[in-house]
């Protein structure tokens, strides 16, 4: 009986929290309109969550591309198809690894920072102070950070894929001796703009919405203590990662069904 009571309480708590998060998202979207008049607030946050995340994205992209080159070569060479290495590396990156790994890294670096920043603003009464100055913190603090995440994610994913392809080229052509012309021509002929690149961009935009939403909600909903902010930061990384991986499967099934 206790187990049922526990499960019931857990389910009620979870649904209640999801409901609150949905209302919070609605409030953010409703308040975002005002930001077009003060777009500098969004640009500042694009710098904070996007530009400052660029280094880890580019380094990770480079190494992922290099590993793809090595792993792909070992397999393709058995079939004499090492000329297709450029296609394998680029498709892997733009369809899958670019959006997903970028979203996971973004959640770890920028998402956790957003949650901690907003949680600490709550704990130090900065958000309450804004409310008492008749300034809506959702419009002034939350919405710019959310929009910045949504804008930055596809751009970061594109950077990840681009650097990854260069990493793959470095290993394939420079180290393993694959013909450079074949590497680029196979890639050019095999990668479709709509089916591959655009779908990858859509994926990363969806991940941008989800990760930013989780990050700002967890910060805003954090218990205003050091332990509360710590737990909220932890939840951001865990929930974002799980959401990205789960959504990736759903989006992949929808997008690439007939390709």
């Amino acid at each position: 009986m206790n187990l049922f009571a526990y499960l019931g309480a857990w389910a009620m708590g979870t649904f209640e929290r999801v409901g609150r998060a949905s209302l919070f998202l609605y409030e953010i979207v409703a308040g975002s309109g005002q930001l077009f008049r003060r777009f500098t607030l969004v640009i500042q946050q694009v710098y904070a969550v996007g530009v400052l995340t660029l280094l880890i994205i580019m380094v990770s992209g480079l190494f992922v591309g290099m590993v793809l080159g090595l792993q792909g070569y070992n397999t393709l060479v058995k079939f004499g198809a090492e000329e297709s290495l450029g296609l394998l590396v680029s498709l892997s990156l733009v369809r899958e690894l670019g959006p997903v790994v970028t979203a996971l890294l973004f959640a770890g670096r920028a998402g956790s920072a957003l949650t901690a920043e907003i949680g600490l603003m709550k704990a130090t009464e900065q958000l309450a102070g804004m409310e008492m100055m008749a300034v809506n913190p959702v419009t002034r603090v939350i919405a710019p950070r959310f929009l910045a995440g949504v804008i930055a994610m596809p751009l970061l994913a594109a950077m990840f894929s681009a650097v990854g392809v260069l990493g793959g080229h470095l290993v394939s052509v420079g180290l393993l001796g694959v013909d450079a012309g074949s590497f680029w021509s196979q890639m050019q002929s095999g990668v479709d703009f709509y089916d591959d690149i655009l779908n990858g961009v859509i994926k990363s935009a969806v991940f941008g919405v989800v990760v930013s939403w989780i990050a700002v909600f967890e910060g805003y909903d954090a218990v205003p203590t050091s332990e509360g902010v710590s737990r909220a930061t932890n939840r951001t990384v865990v929930y974002s990662s799980l959401a990205v991986l789960g959504l990736d499967f759903v989006l992949t099934a929808l997008m690439f069904k007939g390709v």
Binding site: E125, Q126, A128
Partner: peptide, 19 residues
């Protein structure tokens, strides 16, 4: 409420300055 708050000021215990 926001219109009323524009006519109120509040000093928080922590100061609540924007860091």
């Amino acid at each position: 409420l926001f219109a009323l708050r524009k006519r109120m000021g509040m000093l928080f215990q922590t100061g609540a300055l924007l860091t």
